[in-house]
Design a protein around this nucleic acid. Structure first.
Lengths: 340, 340
DNA sequence: GCAAGTTTTGCTCACGGGAGCAATAGGCAT
DNA sequence: ATGCCTATTGCTCCCGTGAGCAAAACTTGC
């Protein structure tokens, strides 16, 4: 067998090579690969064929450099413990790629690292930065906006009060009212709200909404506890210190969790350490509708965010150059299963 | 409040601007940002200060274009249902960034899409492509190697027989022997092996190893069934058709699963649909040691891959320009919990 | 067949930085 | 001060493409 089975390392084939071979100019070759370029069908086909044969593909680095548009967005994530992130990444990568956007994935380790992460994005001259994480508080956002040049800073699946960012999220108030209403109507009367970290002002809204609802309808403050991170194991620990040594009458009848990650940790603890049944002894609700929530084990009553819709809107925001983009809230829907 | 709170959209500040301000040449400015450049400490500091003030950061597109090294690697993933992917991504993004590599995340929808995904990577002129998925069979790899120009094609966490790729994986044979041996020694005698899709020859090794072990020690073929994808729900379905209508004596005493995703689906089904206990009625083992495997709910006996070590080796492979890189197998370790 | 209008094509001039070499400055012994 | 060696600095020439305009080619109506 001859050598041609070896990988073609193709010492950079450039538009010039294709042009020479196809008998046209370099610019015609490039036009053959640009969406909105004016080129005759004849030369288009001629160029495409030669390019295919030679294995030519345009160099997006150069294109980006010359056109000042990279078609690249940075995706900053800092919370890999939450399975919902995997769902969001799947949706984002799939839809963005379909629309011609490439994704630079940046792991933002912690709050102090946000600056470095943004620097990374900045050096690649991304067209936008998408944040899907929890540590991005207002202070971080401010430094980001001041220090680096980003055309767009998009907070995905989280609300932000910062006027210079674009936030695409579910309507937490509406959602949590729906949950609270469901809890109320189903007859639960001793709820315990399991909240996430208190550092970020972002998700506070869910807790506040629930507390408000309860106060309004019963005149009393529901019990709330808070976990230092959206981590099932930490949630279990917090639930433990809150529930241990209580007797049946003082035990909550439902755990309203800020998201599924917490709900899952709480479920595991209640079942396997306390030996209680769900929902008979304690009911549970979550938020996000992660894949496991549907599984036979959890059957979690939760709230589904319309991720596809949200991502489609994100795409619009990305392509929209002229007008100012606006924050937008989406309506999800309550998914009722057996856990509550 | 004055206007200076508005984000600095910084009409491209370039090395020339910094040079003028700092009283040096453009090249000296660039040298201040290159690791191995020769520059006096005095001008380095001068440039750094001015750059900081002006908000200048070098443009990696231009640098990449001129130097023919992008410091960018593409990460192709096609299986977002498996939580292990999230762990792998966390490890890869963290360590690669620390070593100066940026990551282009590409969602490879299915086998037919692999070509397009690779094209994407090719257009950004990545220095390497890392595959962490299951659909990348030998045929796909071959076309990838022939059609596009990739310096390195790395198969991560999966073995590959293709001589033109670099595979970094755990030693499946060693690992599965260890599992089989454990199953054997704990006295299980009616194992059922739950395998993944049969299309890819890659993970076949685990099943073959287990079957060989059993044949060798008992002279009989263990029962095996196969799931069309590494998806907990599908696993539940397959287990259902395999176990339904069996009585206690013909039921397997242990389910040996090709990975944790399958094990989790099987566990849920066995517990909640069959109403059996784990491990008393049926024991279960997995592979990967995903975060949930440790939780109170599953307590899954499984096999942990040394992901950090593997990623460190990956980094070495990436930086190694000269010599030919070699495939490498790593030893993980059996993690024994209560599920078997 | 010809003028006017419409495509299509080629060209100049960037985009922002790296390689590699030539020029300059600084350090040291004599 | 001189000569020699070395650490810095500046410069030329790319890297591979896009924007926008001018030249060329093709249409159309008469």
């Amino acid at each position: 067998m001859p050598d041609d089975r070896k990988p073609a390392f193709a010492s950079n084939i450039t538009a010039d090579d294709v042009a020479a071979e196809a008998g046209v100019s370099r610019w015609t070759v490039n036009r053959a690969f640009r969406k909105d370029a004016s080129i005759s069908p004849k030369s288009l086909e001629k160029v495409r064929i030669v390019a295919e044969r030679l294995g030519y593909v345009p160099d997006l680095r150069a294109a980006s450099l010359a056109s000042d548009r990279s078609n690249l967005v940075a995706l900053l994530i800092d919370d890999f413990a939450n399975p919902h992130k995997l769902v969001m990444m799947e949706r984002l990568t799939r839809i963005l790629r379909r629309e011609g956007w490439d994704i630079l994935l940046v792991n933002t380790l912690d709050r102090n690292d946000a600056g470095h992460a943004l620097l990374n994005a900045s050096q690649r001259r991304v067209d936008a930065v998408i944040l899907i994480g929890i540590q991005f508080d207002d202070e971080v956002l401010d430094t980001a906006l001041h220090a680096r040049r980003f055309r767009k800073l998009i907070i995905f699946a989280r609300t932000s009060r910062n006027p210079n960012t674009i936030s695409i999220a579910v309507d937490d108030v509406h959602a949590m009212r729906e949950i609270a209403n469901y809890v109320h109507e189903r007859g639960y009367r001793r709820p315990l709200f399991l909240a996430g970290p208190r550092t970020s002002s972002a998700h506070l809204l869910r807790k506040e909404t629930f507390v408000d609802y309860w106060r309004q309808h019963f005149g009393s403050e529901p019990e709330t506890i808070s976990v230092a991170a959206y981590d099932p194991d930490l949630a279990a620990g917090v639930v433990e210190t809150a529930l241990v040594n209580r007797n049946k009458t003082t035990l909550p009848d439902i755990l309203v969790c800020e998201n599924d990650a917490l709900a899952i940790g709480a479920t595991d603890f209640i079942r396997h350490k306390l030996g209680l049944r769900i929902p008979q002894d304690i009911a549970i609700t979550g938020f996000d509708d992660v894949p496991q929530a549907e599984g036979a084990n959890y059957r979690l009553t939760t709230y589904r965010q319309p991720l596809t819709e949200m991502t489609e809107y994100l795409v619009k925001v990305l392509s929209n150059e002229e007008e100012r983009d606006f924050d937008r809230l989406f309506q999800g829907r309550l998914v009722i299963r057996e856990s509550a």
